[in-house]
Design a protein around this nucleic acid. Structure first.
Length: 589
DNA sequence: TTAGGGTTAG
């Protein structure tokens, strides 16, 4: 059945003339607008809520002749943007029952709808409808499915589908499909694979565009490879693809996270020189970066600057600054910000609450944190696992071990599924208070779930064992990591090196350092500090000074604990100072 | 021309 395109109806829409239009409903206002202006008018803007959308749908299906599939597609898109996925499904079924013709667009919308519901398996069940209706799949169909796989963490399936499409020449990927695959890969931590795909793409007919470059630049920045990101950034410019606000924002975020403030300034100026002005997200990235480095006063200045430029802070900006105050122990200031936000009619979400709760816990005000936890549901928000983990940690911090255990039981009874962080917090708490047997018994109980464990979880266990003098056991767990497919990180090595150093086992520490370097994990500031302290404690001054020089040469510096220990040694034996010619510069750093 | 792609907070 062929439908007359609505745009050819001389400004009137036949199917709408049968509908009685009461004045009150916004949908009806929209229909009225459509009648007046034809299909080009935006009824999308008039549909404000689910009721509007549903009412419009029911009116549409009663019309004679029926509206075209284009109008149904538009309406479904609105419902999807409102996240009313199941309503889209039921309405699509109704459409099918009524025999309203379908096309590739609306079927692709249905596939995407299932993928957004995290039901990629159901999305595949739409494919037979294409076949039955003689409609061909296209690149959009497959792109949506690939995205669906990634959304459900099915990276292997996503990549296999993509490879199959290319290998069997089922569908030639376009820029969007490449971007979808690369974004999926990068968000799951496969930065190198993302970069390889970019290089592969350069050799094929579909060339990387702004989106593709921005995805890879963002991935490199998130992994801390800011130099590689800059190289790629320059490469895209040389190829005549100008970066936009998102590319700059990703790059600036990378520099913020590395504390490279000069580069932040350089690229902020560069973007403005190119008439690309920072928006609320760009400013929030800078504010968050400053806050995380403890530079809250600078963050406040940036906030004033953005307001001066007419850019209003949003909930994320306020949350970042609240977290900045909390990290410095200024939970009361964070509470001002929090109340100010409410005054500005910005309703706090669970992340805001969790930040504030963490702030109270950090100040050991667990009662305040608990009080706030109770208020969350009253204000229409819902605590999540992170909120509960924060309180659990807070209870351990103040030594309320019994309450922490009860709280853990309570959170499970409330239906929360403990995550790795929950288990890590419990184990860390047990180890902190010397409850090694309890910790290890719990650790053994978790054995079945260990396949999901990450390196940070094992770092907690290794650290706990080291701190409790169980170095052999810690070392044994370390040795098992590779068989579990886990790669030790700098924290793992530093924890074990600290453990050995504290026991005066400097040879074992050095062995561990060698392993660290052999495995491509570079020693960091913590590693050097731990070694300097180890040598100082064992009174190995000459070895300590050699290391100290190397440390300074590599751009690292003594932290507060090391400096204090070094000063104590110098007080007892002033001649040590002569062996450390650059001590003053070290202290200054 | 109704479908699919990139940035910020616990």
């Amino acid at each position: 059945m062929k439908r007359i395109p609505l745009c050819k109806c001389n400004g009137t829409i036949p199917f709408l003339s049968f509908v009685a239009i009461p004045r009150s409903c916004s949908v009806n206002r929209s229909i009225s607008a459509m009648s007046k202006f034809g299909v080009n008018s935006n009824f999308e803007k008039e549909v404000k809520c689910l009721d509007d959308a549903v009412n419009l749908f029911h009116q549409m299906v009663r019309m004679k002749p029926l509206p075209s599939v284009v109008d149904f597609s538009k309406l479904f898109k609105i419902m999807i943007s409102m996240k009313h996925y199941s309503t889209v499904l039921s309405h699509f079924r109704e459409m099918q029952k009524l025999g309203i013709p379908i096309n590739v667009f609306i079927l692709n919308i249905m596939i995407n709808n299932y993928c957004l519901m995290h039901h990629v398996d159901c999305a595949f069940s739409v494919l037979p409808i294409y076949l039955k209706s003689g409609i061909s799949f296209n690149v959009v169909t497959f792109t949506a499915l690939i995205r669906g796989f990634f959304a459900e963490n099915k990276v292997k399936d996503a990549v296999e589908l993509f490879k199959k499409l290319v290998r069997e020449k089922i569908c030639e990927p376009n820029e969007v499909m490449y971007a979808t695959v690369m974004n999926g890969l990068s968000k799951k931590g496969h930065t190198q694979k993302t970069l390889s795909l970019l290089r592969l793409m350069e050799q094929r007919s579909t060339k990387p565009d702004l989106f593709i470059y921005s995805i890879v630049i963002d991935a490199l920045c998130k992994d801390g490879y800011s130099d590689d990101a800059i190289n790629l950034f320059n490469e895209m410019k040389q190829k005549g693809i100008p970066p936009d606000i998102l590319t700059y924002s990703s790059l600036i975020d990378g520099f913020c996270k590395l504390g490279q403030w000069e580069k932040v300034r350089t690229y902020l100026s560069e973007m403005v020189n190119h008439n690309i002005y920072p928006d609320v997200r760009t400013f929030t990235i800078v504010i968050d970066g400053l806050c995380k480095e403890g530079k809250v006063a600078d963050a406040e200045e940036v906030m004033k600057h953005m307001v001066g430029k007419g850019v209003e802070p949003d909930i994320i900006t306020y949350t970042a600054i609240m977290d900045g105050y909390c990290l410095r122990g200024q939970v009361d200031r964070a509470r001002r910000v929090f109340d100010f936000m409410i005054d500005k009619s910005i309703e706090p979400n669970i992340i805001c609450y969790s930040v504030l709760i963490k702030g109270y816990c950090k100040k050991k005000k667990v009662a305040e944190a608990m009080k706030l936890l109770g208020e969350i549901s009253q204000r229409g928000s819902k605590p999540d696992i992170v909120t509960y983990n924060t309180i659990l940690q807070g209870l351990f911090e103040v030594g309320r071990i019994g309450d922490a255990k009860d709280f853990y039981v309570e959170m499970i009874s409330l239906g929360f599924i403990p995550d790795l962080y929950t288990h890590g917090t419990l184990l860390n708490g047990y180890f902190k208070y010397g409850l090694v047997e309890e910790a290890m018994s719990f650790f053994d109980k978790l054995e079945r779930k260990r396949e999901n464990a990450n390196i940070e979880f094992f770092n907690v266990v290794i650290n706990g064992l080291c701190k409790n003098g169980k170095l052999d056991k810690a070392h044994a767990i370390f040795e098992k990591l590779s068989s579990m497919g886990l790669l030790p990180n700098a924290r793992t090595y530093n924890t074990l090196i600290t453990g050995f150093c504290l026991k005066g086992l400097l040879d074992e520490s050095k062995d561990m350092l060698r392993k660290m370097e052999d495995n491509g994990c570079m020693p960091d500031n913590v590693t050097y500090n731990v070694f300097v302290r180890g040598y100082l404690r064992c009174n190995k001054i000459s070895e300590m000074t050699i290391l100290l020089k190397e440390m300074v040469r590599r751009g690292f510096s003594c932290d507060a604990t090391t400096t204090e220990l070094l000063l104590n040694v110098i007080r007892e034996n002033p001649s040590v100072l002569d062996m450390i010619p650059k001590f003053h510069s070290i202290k200054k750093k």
